[in-house]
Design a protein around this nucleic acid. Sequence first.
RNA 1: UCGGGAGUAGUUUAGUUGGUAGAACGCCUGGCUCUGAACCAGGAGGUCGCAGGUUCGAGUCCUGCCUCCCGAGCCA
Length: 752
Amino acid sequence: MSETKDFLRTIVEEDLKAGKYEQVHTRFPPEPNGFPHIGHAKSIVLNFGIARDYEGICNLRMDDTDPTKEDMKYVEALKDAVKWLGFDWGEKVYFTSDYFGKLYDYAVDLIKMEKAYVDSLNEEEIREYRGTVTEPGRRSKYAERSVEENLDLFERMKNGEFEEGAHVLRAKIDMSSPNMKMRDPLLYRIRHASHYRVGEGWHVYPMYDFAHCLSDYMEGITHSLCTLEFENNRDIYDWVIETLGLEPPRPYQYEFARLNMNYTVMSKRKLLELVEGNYVNGWDDPRLPTIAGYRRRGYTPESIVTFCEQIGVAKANSTVDVAQLEFCIRDDLNTKVPRVMCVMDPLKVTIVNYEGSELLDASYYPHDVPKEGSRKLPFSKEVYIDRADFSENPPKGYYRLTPDQPVRLKHAYIIACKEVVKDEEGNIVEIKAEYFPDSKSGSDTSGIKVRSAIQWVEVASAKPVEVRLYDRLFKCEAPEGLEDINPDSLKVIKNALVEPAVVDEKPDVRFQFEREGYFYADPVDYRDDAPVFNKIVGLKDSWAKKEKPKPQNKPKQKAQKPVQKEGEVAPMSAEEQGRFDRFTHEYKLNPEVANTLARDAKLADFFDEAVAVYESPVTIANIVANEVAREFKEHPDDALRFGPKEVASLAKMLDEETISSKIAKQVFEEMAKTGKSPETIVEEKDLKQISDPVQIAAVIDDVIAKNPENVAKYKEGNQKLFGFFVGQVLKATGGKANPKVVNDLVREKLEA
RNA sequence: UCGGGAGUAGUUUAGUUGGUAGAACGCCUGGCUCUGAACCAGGAGGUCGCAGGUUCGAGUCCUGCCUCCCGAGCCA
């Protein structure tokens, strides 16, 4: 269960609590027309996760209504992805194509209800007739066809009697709807194509908007979760279900933001471009954000699931930092995989004072990982260390081997550099070193303190391996296209050297190569005689950060107030202006409130009527412009359960200080809900204001006594806590205490 | 231009009758360490898109505005 509830889980929980459904039923409905990526993972984790959290069901459904795009290989890839992530779709995989028969029957029903018609306009005409976002469309003359004719035409469409494009079936909704999607949306189109599953039988195929809602309904889906771009389609979703008069319970659609991540691309088109242009090596290239790519790279399903849970679900478009994903995989692997040593860029070290050889005990796990396991590490006179771990002229703060600074060979001895051997060109080719016999790991009595312990391999026993170092596929955060590809996204090291246990013992398929990162035995290319390891992710490296400080984010010029353009406010009509003048002059209303009232005839009338009952224009105006306005807004179609008269008496109580403004809001809400008069509500709930200082003081004393830390903090200068105390006192009195009195007394007592 | 959505630390987000703006990642310090990792402790970082209004008190309520996303496929 995720730590904080997202808005969808909140909805599910409320629906369940309200008894709207017996059990939650979600679905993950991809179209099998491409390889799933981490964005799909978000949807999978969401849908299956909700089912799991609320003991419901989640279907896996292939939304395969376009015969020209879909393929069985994608179905398999999708199934693999879901399974790999650890979710179970139960008995069977669902296919929209299994519903073609039923869907057809529903379409016939719609025709019989005169809610659908066969349109014979061509594609261009349909577009033209649809209008634009600002102009209404107009209906095709074919919309007037009789039910019989429509039925006949539709059946013949199905039977393949017409050319593609000759006719379509459309819903008869509203060609002037402000929502373009509702301008008689297409329900069926003719396609003389072979469907990858159902074959040749059909010549008409349902559109998404018709098939999806009905598939959801037929499967008993309760919450149909999709991405934001379908917001406009929700109206059709509801229209189809309502028009068909389907028996409840019915599904409802909710939308959430799809996943975006920096330094990568997620769109099908761009991914395809990368694969087909051979910028990467296939759909499972470890640099790709595809499930297959992450899998091949060595990411664990657990880390992906955790990531999806961490980023949450909301409706704001956003781009997640890939660092969050990297954290998840490091965090997961840290407690799971054995540590071994690998030297990427070997530099020979000869330990001049060491003779013979020995096998050293070396644990696979560091002290803080509660796992057992170790191997024998061969050690002798000649070893390799990484070039980066020796420096002849070390920068400040360098911890590793230098001519003056000894270093420990991890699990072995401390060595000190005695001589640097170079070739004619001055390149370092070998280090001659001495070791300290009493510094052996585990029984060190040398007393020598070193800053660092570095990885190494013994020359005689080291095994060559290929290591593939993967970096971000794109060099910028928001890549647009191929031009943003990072030329160094893959670096292959053909002859890295690992300690023998890695390939002889094979304690795991994933390792941490100490001080380098996490690596995975490539599932495709790895062979015993030619091992290949993929870099999953590097270790955090604060030294590298210090060494190569990023190109300083330009001297942040404190984003000097982005002077916001003020938009134009619509001018008032003569009538509105007249009201405005009357309100400001006659009633002395504040111009802001007068403006709100004047521009809304309903509010203005309401206000006038209330003032006629009780002449306190300012108080009434405030209530009308704020509270009443909200009621109108929230219930645009319903009649209000209260009228100007009630508002007038509420204003009266406020003016006479019978109740506080805080309580007035409460009374108003109750009034709006039940229609009772304010007097009755105040009477029934005993909401009269408490202004007696003695009574209030007692409450304050109590609050102060109960919150000594906050009192101290306040006295130290945390002014913001003042509101806390006032709030506590008000809470204790059920909101009835006179806030002005409370404020004065709290200040007095706290300052005392 | 019309309709629908969305704006809270660098990033992703929580914020439930208006009452101390929290978390995770990232960043910075320090400690510990036979991984410059992990771990532990601490810190910086927020004009809650902007401007008004209501209120003793607004991220939360009201009004106006700004910015971004989606929408005129016989794709999904």
